[in-house]
Design a protein around this nucleic acid. Structure first.
Lengths: 414, 414
DNA sequence: GCTCTTTTTTTCGAGCCTCGAAAAAATACT
DNA sequence: AGTATTTTTTCGAGGCTCGAAAAAAAGAGC
């Protein structure tokens, strides 16, 4: 099973703890780090002195003028923005966006492009991704050697090892090993992440109070996606990114889903499903390829206006989501939920039926106490999540082990 | 977040690894332990010499006569059966059973009792549990001081901290803190476990080849329960034992479930549901309290005999289980399944409809490759799981830290 | 029966790492 | 300027793991 702990692992792990503490707290003093990690002051002192010597951390003046305490003032430790950089690539329906982010998490540069992802050939899609990354790397302001990691996020299913996209609604092509492709092309370690998982990662960094150890991020968009954090860990399937909440069964043999099957939650709550119901097209109608955000906002407006088929469509969506959440809660117990995406802006139309449905399930025993939060814009969240994922990789996998193994690499400060 | 690693943790963890390696492998040599843990021979030598000195491990002669290898023969290390003992208490419908198990996992003594759990008062139920434990502890052959842990398993929902039963179908009473009660009564650390989780634990020990990192144990009994292991970890809810597969929704507003709600998987696949459908009583009929195993076997026989309402009842059960598993697989991806309990003996009647249903779900994409195994008798599994849970607790929490902190306690061999 | 070979296990010194205590540093209070 | 207070560093002690070498315990060969 798992492997024994070597002596050198110890330092690596404790270095990782210190870096993580600094990334989380912003500008903590050595004393604060000692308190949060439980390590002794001497150890923190030794480790942080090493990390500063290696250019990973940097001391920053207290900066707080209102710190009228006695005693030697604390000196804050911060991440050195120039220690490294990472790149995020977000590929969504008809849209590709890239950003370069410094080690402290600030965006250095970005680029966005419209594509016709549904009709592009496999090679063209890969080519566009490679090209946009290359353009960013060729930016004269950027030190290419400092780019330590690329994180791609895509709508759809990725594999557990974060190497490949297995299936995606934005393209007819399957099994594209984006991570390997980018690694081979640029020699920079890369991962392929699921968009909703990245949303969950981002929520945890944005609001650690609310989104801590257990929570759910649900993407209400053309399709329905989910990112799930359980016991502080991002939940993934055994083979894939998992958490395909949208394809849990709501009604056996029910409405036609984009995945070709019947009765999935998405077949009632995805944008195309709401649109289909609002237009009263019948549940067997082939899902349309795309409904614009503007159309969805118009639909929501009409639903708020009068009690017609539009309102009924949102009611059905709420019911499907409610029963789906009820089944999910039966498995994992209730947890805070964040609704993300265009239809999150119409959550007022969805919520009543959702709560009613959830109250009829075992998981909804305390349905009043389940709280929902909404965030209409998913893209910034996905990018933030990617950035944090790439940065924590650099923290844990590159900086924590230190550079003693290879004396030629990295910056060796005496 | 998590805490830094101290220097003394190191030894504790590596001791735990060695003990775990011995428990898993049976009679491994020091060399084998070094190989599986990745630690050096010197370290293994030092640790195992300590453990032998403390009476936790014991050397055993090679025992294999056919070991015609050159070189110094390996000497096997085994668990010392007298190092400690644990107790398992399994509380199920109308039945209470207790066993005392030595440190090597052999049953020393046991006792079983029939009770009328559904009608007993709260105090009577607790009293019976306490009394049966006391009788075992008063056994003159048993050194009471060696009993290091009690593990209770109960059908129903337990809390995450493994202290209390929150709800159970075998009694109308709720929120009984069995673990605390036993601890207070006997001064022995105790935990309260969910029966299906213990089944999963046992399967992992019984057949580590098949049930390794990801698998599902489903109890097909009066109710439907599940134990789930994901990524090598027992899956639990955020507040409770979780994994209430039986109460995922199969049909919104469908058949009446024992939990009082409608459309749960259990309301189609639990014994009472199969019985209700076989008797053509209608889905709104109040679930009966108990159907005997003999009745269920008769039902299965009738279903095999001719294509009547009995066969249809099993078909409906298969359909509900199939759609439920499909939804589950959408979340976690497919994994090997073990069907446990009386109705597992009728799995031939269930399987066709189950596979048909699962094939219509997103999670059932490779439905042929999903393999089912059956085990009609759940009680031995639950007891084995409890025993292993209690024993690994002793391994990790009592023996791994060692006794250096309290020089008076334990056996200190110079 | 004795020596050689092979494999397992133990011993020993080196190198790290963390810790606690004490010292040093840096500032506010008086 | 001196004192109190808080943060940070320094230093020696104690542990732990590791690699190399030695010791132990057999079978193989003559």
């Amino acid at each position: 099973m798992s492997v024994g702990i070597r002596h050198d692992d110890l330092r690596r792990r404790n270095r990782a703890m210190v870096i993580a503490a600094v990334r989380r707290a912003g500008q903590p003093s050595r004393t604060e780090i000692a308190a949060t990690t439980g390590l002794s002051h001497s150890t923190i002192s030794a480790i942080s002195s090493d990390l500063i010597g290696e250019g990973i951390l940097a001391e920053s003046k207290p900066s707080e003028p209102g710190s009228l305490k006695r005693g030697r003032p604390q000196v804050g430790l911060g991440l050195n923005p120039e220690a490294a950089a990472v790149m995020t690539v977000v590929l969504s329906l008809n849209f590709l966006s890239v950003a370069v982010i410094d080690y402290a998490g600030q965006v250095i540069s970005e680029e966005q492009r419209r594509l016709d992802t549904l009709t592009m050939s496999r090679d063209a899609l890969i080519g566009e991704c490679v090209a946009i990354v290359r353009r960013r790397l060729e930016d004269p302001d950027l030190d290419v050697r400092s780019v330590a990691r690329i994180a791609l996020a895509i709508q759809g299913i990725t594999d557990t090892r974060a190497r490949a996209m297995l299936w995606s609604p934005i393209t007819p092509h399957t099994d594209i090993a984006f991570a390997d492709i980018l690694e081979d092309e640029f020699g920079i370690p890369a991962t392929m992440e699921n968009d909703c998982n990245m949303m969950a990662v981002a929520l945890r960094w944005r609001d650690p109070q609310r989104y801590r150890d257990d929570f759910i991020a649900i993407l209400l968009s053309h399709g329905i996606g989910m990112g799930l954090v359980l016991k502080g860990q991002l939940f993934t399937g055994t083979h894939s990114s998992g958490g395909e909440f949208g394809h849990m069964i709501h009604q056996p043999k029910g409405a036609l889903c984009r995945c070709g099957r019947r009765g999935c939650v998405e077949a009632y709550a995805g944008n195309y499903a709401i649109w289909r119901n609002a237009r009263q097209l019948g549940e067997d109608t082939e899902p349309v390829a795309d409904v614009s955000d503007a159309d969805m906002r118009a639909l929501a407006a009409a639903a708020r206006e009068s009690d017609g088929p539009e309102r009924e469509a949102y009611r059905k969506a709420g019911e499907a989501l409610g029963y789906g959440l009820g089944s999910l809660f039966a498995l994992i117990d209730p947890a805070p939920v964040a609704m993300v995406g265009v239809s999150a802006a119409a959550f007022d139309l969805i919520e009543p039926a959702l709560r009613e449905a959830i109250a009829q399930t075992a998981g909804g025993q305390h349905s009043e106490s389940i709280s929902f939060d909404t965030e209409p814009n998913e893209l910034p969240l996905i990018r933030e999540g990617c950035a944090m994922r790439a940065l924590t990789f650099v923290d844990q996998e590159i900086f924590a082990p230190g550079a003693q193994a290879r004396p030629g690499a990295g910056k060796n400060v005496a």
